[in-house]
Nucleic acid binder design. Structure first.
Length: 183
DNA sequence: TGCACGATGAAC
DNA sequence: TTCATCGTGCAC
C-alpha cells in the first residue's frame, strides 16, 4: 500500500479534511494490521481558531501541531479516551484534522463510530503521539477502488465554548454513511 | 501546589 | 441528563 505523500498534508486544513474522507487509515501493531475507512473529520485551523488546542499557544501537549505536516497528534480527553489528529500546513502553523469516525475494513476491535472509539478499535495509544505518517506503522492510504463520497458540512461537535468559531462549518462527513457519529 | 475543565461515550 | 476519570493549563 502506498502512503499519502507529505505534500498531501502540507495544504489548507479544510481541503485536507475533505480529501481524507474515503481514505484508509492503517495501523500495524507488529502482528495485526487494522484498517478503517475515514468517514468523518473536523478541521482545526490554528492558534486563531478558539476551538483548537493550539489557541492556547505552543505547549508540551500541542507541540506536535506546530511541527511539520503528516504527523499524528494523539491526546487524552476526559481522562479516558484518546483522539487522533493529522497535522496539516507547513511547520510552524499549528493546524490539524481530527479523525472523528471510520468504517471498519479489517481487524477493527469494537466500535469505530466516534473519535475515542476508533482509537480503541485500531489500538491507537499515546505512544503514537508525534508519529510520522510516512515511514511508520501508522499511515493513511488511498484505496484501490475509491468511491467519491458525497460530503456533508456541519458545525464541529463539543466546541460550544469557542464563540463564533463554534458555528463554522468545519465538520465533514460522508452522506448517509451509518458509521458517522451522532445525528 | 491546587483546581476546574474538557475536540467523549454509555447508562439511566 | 448524569457520570466516569485524569492530564493540562492557569490561578494562587
Amino acid at each position: 500500500m502506498k502512503k499519502l505523500p507529505r505534500p498531501f498534508y502540507d495544504r489548507d486544513t479544510v481541503e485536507v479534511a475533505k480529501d481524507l474522507l474515503g481514505m484508509w487509515l492503517v495501523h500495524h501493531d507488529g502482528k495485526t494490521e487494522r484498517i478503517g475507512r475515514i468517514v468523518e473529520t473536523e478541521s482545526y485551523l490554528g492558534p486563531h481558531d478558539l476551538a483548537a488546542h493550539s489557541a492556547k499557544g505552543r505547549t508540551k501537549r500541542t507541540d506536535v501541531m506546530f511541527g511539520p505536516p503528516g504527523h499524528a497528534y494523539v491526546y487524552l480527553i476526559y481522562g479516558m479516551y484518546r483522539c487522533l489528529n493529522v497535522v496539516t500546513m507547513p511547520e510552524g502553523h499549528a493546524a490539524a484534522v481530527l479523525i472523528r469516525a471510520v468504517e471498519p475494513i479489517k481487524n477493527c476491535d469494537g466500535k469505530t463510530k466516534g473519535p475515542g472509539l476508533l482509537c480503541n478499535a485500531l489500538h491507537i495509544g499515546m505512544p503514537l503521539n508525534g508519529a510520522d505518517l510516512l515511514g511508520g506503522n501508522l499511515f493513511i492510504t488511498k484505496p484501490n477502488n475509491p468511491e467519491t463520497p458525497t460530503i456533508v458540512k456541519r458545525p464541529r461537535v463539543g466546541v460550544d465554548y469557542a464563540g463564533k468559531w463554534a458555528k463554522r462549518l468545519l465538520r465533514f462527513y460522508v452522506k448517509d454513511n451509518p458509521f458517522v457519529s451522532k445525528r
